[in-house]
Every structure is written in structure tokens, then in C-alpha cells.
């Protein structure tokens, strides 16, 4: 694992207005993450996992403190700069796959590259590479409705990886999958993490996911209560 820092938070605080008071979702988070980490944010519901994922993914901004992603302060980014950061450098994997139902597997994966105005030939190569990583080159013309849950999540992984992002954020990616598919998905992501040096950050409380993680950051009431680095291979 390389140690160059690509994510850094300093005294990160996030509050949400609830009625006349504020709810503090993150309360002074200090974290540093390096390139190629395979880390998980774990903790009970309401502990701040998704909020932290939102800020790292430039979907939200801190109330106080700073969050740097790839050297950029999230608080200082305009909407357009946030969108560009997501489009070029951050991949997202959702619990419910969130594929575009009217488009084929190929087109779903291709979509992120269309926004980058890549040439047709480069786009095709990148899409086919991504589908090869997840083993779905034989399903390029299939619509999401024709795929199993595991296959849909593999398409979602290909979609997040096709642009070769530095960071992939995955929110409960195995929650809708059975054990066999969960392991398959996690193994795929682990291989990509190792080969492409992509940093994966999970928000999860799935024990199956935790077995694959190199680092487990436990959150509770918006604070980091435990930051455990696991070096041994567990799979």
C-alpha cells in the first residue's frame, strides 16, 4: 500500500438543522487516507458513515473544518468543480445498483465517459476493459432488467471504474446480495484495488465486507472511535 495521502480531513464537523436545533452528524473527524487503501467506515445507523462518504465524494460540504480530496478543499469547490471532481476522480457504488434501466450494460458503463467527451474509440476500449474486469463482456447488449443482482452490481462496479478514478465510494454495496455474490463482488473490487491502486472506501456494517478490508474506521455519534489498520490478507 502506498502512503501518499489523497484524502485528509481536519476537525471535520457537519451539522444538519433539525427543527430549531442542529443535529451534529460528524463531530471533529481527523482522518488521512492514502492511495490504494481498501478501507471501511463502520458503525451503527446514524454514526455518520454516509455523511462522511458524502463529503469525501464532494456531494456535500463541511459545516466546519476542512476536507481535502486529491489536494482540493471540498468547501472551496464550486458546483461545477465538484461535478468535475466526481466525474473524473471519484466512482460511486450504491446499495441498489442504480443502473439506468433503458440503457444496455455497455451504455450504462459508457455514460460516465460521454460526459468526459472522450473519443469513440477510446471510450469503447475503456468500456470493454471495465466490463472485462468484472467478467461481463458477454452481456454488453443486455438491459439491467435481464441481469441478476450480482451482475447488476458488477455493472455498477464497471461503471465506477471505467474512468479509472483514484477513489471509489461504496455505500453498503453488498446489502442486496447473497453471500456468494457478495464475495464475488468484493473479490472483484479487491483485485481492482490491488491492480489499479484505486482507493476503495466502504460505508458498511456487513461482516462479509469487513473481512476484506485493510482498514476499519469505526464511527459512533459522529466521532472516530477506532481506526484499525489490518495488514494480514484475510481472503
Amino acid at each position: 500500500m502506498e502512503n501518499s495521502s489523497i484524502i485528509k480531513t481536519e476537525n471535520l464537523i457537519k451539522r444538519f438543522p433539525v427543527g430549531k436545533t442542529d443535529f451534529t452528524a460528524l463531530n471533529g473527524i481527523n482522518l488521512t487516507m492514502g492511495t490504494g487503501e481498501f478501507a471501511g467506515l463502520v458503525g451503527p445507523s446514524g454514526s455518520g458513515k454516509t455523511t462522511l462518504l458524502n463529503i469525501i465524494g464532494s456531494l456535500d460540504t463541511p459545516s466546519e473544518g476542512t476536507a481535502y480530496v486529491l489536494g482540493k478543499s471540498i468547501s472551496l469547490l464550486t458546483h461545477a468543480q465538484s461535478a468535475k471532481l466526481r466525474n473524473h476522480h471519484i466512482g460511486f457504488i450504491f446499495q441498489t445498483y442504480n443502473l439506468l434501466p433503458v440503457y444496455t450494460v455497455y451504455e450504462n458503463v459508457e455514460f460516465a465517459l460521454l460526459l468526459q467527451k472522450m473519443t469513440g474509440a477510446d471510450r469503447k476500449k475503456a468500456v470493454m476493459d471495465a466490463l472485462e474486469w468484472v467478467g461481463l463482456t458477454d452481456k454488453i447488449y443486455s438491459k439491467p432488467s435481464m441481469l441478476s443482482g450480482g451482475e447488476c452490481q458488477r455493472v455498477a462496479i464497471a461503471r465506477s471504474m471505467v474512468k479509472r478514478p483514484e477513489i471509489v465510494l461504496a455505500d453498503e454495496p453488498t446489502a442486496n446480495l447473497d453471500s456468494k455474490n457478495s464475495h464475488h463482488i468484493l473479490q472483484t473490487m479487491k483485485v481492482l484495488n490491488r491492480e489499479l491502486k484505486t482507493t476503495f472506501i466502504f460505508a458498511t456494517h456487513d461482516e462479509k465486507v469487513m473481512k476484506y478490508l485493510d482498514r476499519i474506521i469505526s464511527l459512533d455519534d459522529g466521532k472516530v472511535v477506532k481506526d484499525e489498520i489490518l495488514t494480514a490478507e484475510k481472503y
Partner: peptide
């Protein structure tokens, strides 16, 4: 609604 959400998450700008 979901489609627009996915597109925003994938980095498409609102104006786009």
C-alpha cells in the same frame, strides 16, 4: 428522479 440523481452522482452538472 433516480436517473437524475445517478447522473448527478456520476458527475454530470445540473445545467448539463
Amino acid at each position: 428522479y433516480s436517473e437524475y440523481g445517478i447522473r448527478l452522482a456520476l458527475g454530470e452538472e445540473k445545467k448539463h
